[in-house]
Design a protein around this nucleic acid. Sequence first.
DNA 1: ACAATGGTCC
DNA 2: ACTCGGACCATTGTA
Length: 427
Amino acid sequence: MWAHLKDKSIILPAITAEEISKQVEPVLREMEKVGIKLDIDELKRFEGDIEEKANDLHNRILKIADCEINIDSPIQLADLLFKKFKLPTEGLKKTKTGISTAAGELGKIADKHEIIKLILEYRELKKLLTTYLKPLPLLVDEDGRLHTHYGQDTSTGRLNSFEPNLQNIPIKGKWGPKIRGCFVAQDGYKLISADYSQIELRVVACLAEDKEMMEAFNSGKDIHAETAADVFDIPLAEVSKEQRRFAKTINFGVLYGMSPYGLSQALNIPQNDAALYIAKYFDVYRGIKDYVNRMIDKAKTDGYVETLFGAKRELPNINSNYRVAVDADERIAINSPVQGTAAEILKLAMIRLADQLQVLGEKRKAKSEKPIARLLLTVHDELVVEAPEEDAEEISKLVKETMENVVKLCVPIEVEVGVGKNWAEAK
DNA sequence: ACAATGGTCC
DNA sequence: ACTCGGACCATTGTA
């Protein structure tokens, strides 16, 4: 499917998707066994702080509600907001059971009643408590380390993490970095975080062989600003914050098979405007437009699409009579090769890195008893490594080099590395 | 036990 | 009326 790419600037190792999955397997098992240290004392302190705040919010909400409802029940909450308080439901999404109380919907009526802000804040804290702060300490071993399990049974080839999932540890908001900061290096060690910069956009630029997007990656540092300049047809220096934000959303939207409606929702603009931006985007990035059409055609003809290393994704509904099902499969056809190829690049990097760290460990064995650097975590486009303090800077360079050179695409692959005592600091 | 709802991450 | 890719997990409420 991608054979035509391979005789150009792209250089891929001779390995199949199947073989990548097989070879990454022992790497995953070792990472599970090693685990990552959790600073339980620190986590408990945050738990106490947040529990107190959540309780306070809970009390204030019930006082305003002036009745005994369960705030955690969307049904009861909707009754309170839309029946008792008669808040406007116009423009709010509906669910099978009534009016949606999802954060995005409540945000739309946040200025209609003081209780909304309290509910949103309560929800945020409750989430942190029940999903992270309370359960995680129960799962650490006698050495204070947390051992996730990694799987590969996803539809795109990405890795998944469970019991516990360490791929959705908070990072945003006031508390995110504090919680991530509780994932720490063991004594005498540092954590190295290395993440691919815009890997999926770089991949699609290459799969699509889009001249303009390749140029953006080759020339500029800030791809979203470059895209804004291209789409709004202005010099890079004149791109406003707003325009960059738009461009960023469109760039992401492309990877997901965005519709005018989806973009209008994401940007909170009229659907007509969104349609115009998309049209302009595809006008500028002709190659991307062609890629989208090629993937849909391919799916309709063959019933599947595939990644750069040949992992297939079946699309059983692509020729169905139900438009929603067809639309859904079309979006998958657009996204899967991109997401899947990015996943393959990361897994390949893990295989290579594990290998190099192994070699390094053997060399060092003579001099020191200390285990050398070890791979701890993988989060889709990021790797977390634990290395002896004195080696951390050197190892971080090795990690970066390895990740950047595991394949050669038509645009440079860039990896951002950071070193720190904990996961938050390393990012 | 399971569906529905909601929320965290990339 | 509804709509954007891929995961995991908590809670409610029903079966």
